[in-house]
């Protein structure tokens, strides 16, 4: 399951139902559509396997292809994040635009925070949390909470998130797209030690950001 793009259960069930219905009715147009859909799903659902490390409950991988631009303590951002460290990642402009599960976890929910967009070029994010961004809340099996904040800039589009609340994703499964040098702020509980440095290039499922 590690090398798959996120597809909701609804989509898979709908596909199966349409296929069964079309076979039952022997509608060749529908069967043809299902075949095309199946081929496309196979091509895109089965991603190139970039996971090089075996999953371990204590390890946190990068959620995007990009570069670490800042590492810091959550208390600098707000009291709410006092028990977290954060890693700011800039999305690599010409790399895969996906956002991937950094570990197998429950997708709790995602919220849109409305505000002003950031201006580029930026060396680091402002402390102000009022900029336009999206926040994803992930819950690990051990009930640990992780936050991923996605800041779109003037040259990047708003992130598109696929899962719905309560869905479960495996390590490396793609759950959204985020293009154009956007900035990702990843909050990790303080019991994890940060293993990356500023300036380091990271890839999902390959580079370990933090370890318990």
């Amino acid at each position: 399951m590690n090398n798959r793009t996120y597809l909701s259960y609804g989509t898979v069930i709908l596909f199966c139902l349409v296929l069964i219905a079309s076979l039952y009715m022997m509608n060749w147009y529908l069967i043809l559509i299902c075949l095309v859909y199946g081929v496309l799903a196979f091509l895109f659902y089965r991603r190139k396997n970039f996971i090089s490390v075996k999953e371990n409950n204590d390890i946190v991988f990068s959620p995007i292809f990009g570069k670490v631009i800042k590492v810091g303590g959550g208390a600098d951002i707000g009291k709410r994040y006092a028990d977290f460290n954060f890693i700011d990642l800039r999305h690599a402009l010409f790399e895969d635009i996906g956002i991937f599960f950094p570990f197998s976890s429950e997708f709790s929910f995602h919220r849109k925070i409305k505000g002003n967009r950031l201006f580029l070029p930026l060396k680091k994010l402002p402390k102000n949390e009022k900029n336009l961004h999206q926040e994803i809340v992930l819950i690990k099996e051990s009930s640990e909470l992780f936050f991923i904040k996605l800041y779109s800039t003037f040259v990047s589009s708003q992130a598109i998130i696929f899962p719905t609340s309560g869905d479960y994703g495996y390590l490396g499964a793609q759950f959204g797209v985020f293009s154009g040098a956007g900035i990702v702020r990843f909050f990790i509980p303080k019991k994890y030690s940060i293993l990356c440095q500023e300036g380091q290039k990271v890839t999902p499922g390959n580079n370990i950001l933090a370890k318990k």
Binding site: R111, I113, K114, E129, K130, T164, S165, G166
Partner: peptide
């Protein structure tokens, strides 16, 4: 099932 379908937060207005 009491899960959020969508969630919006606005603090600058």
């Amino acid at each position: 099932s009491k899960k959020f379908i969508s969630f919006t937060e606005i603090s600058d207005k």
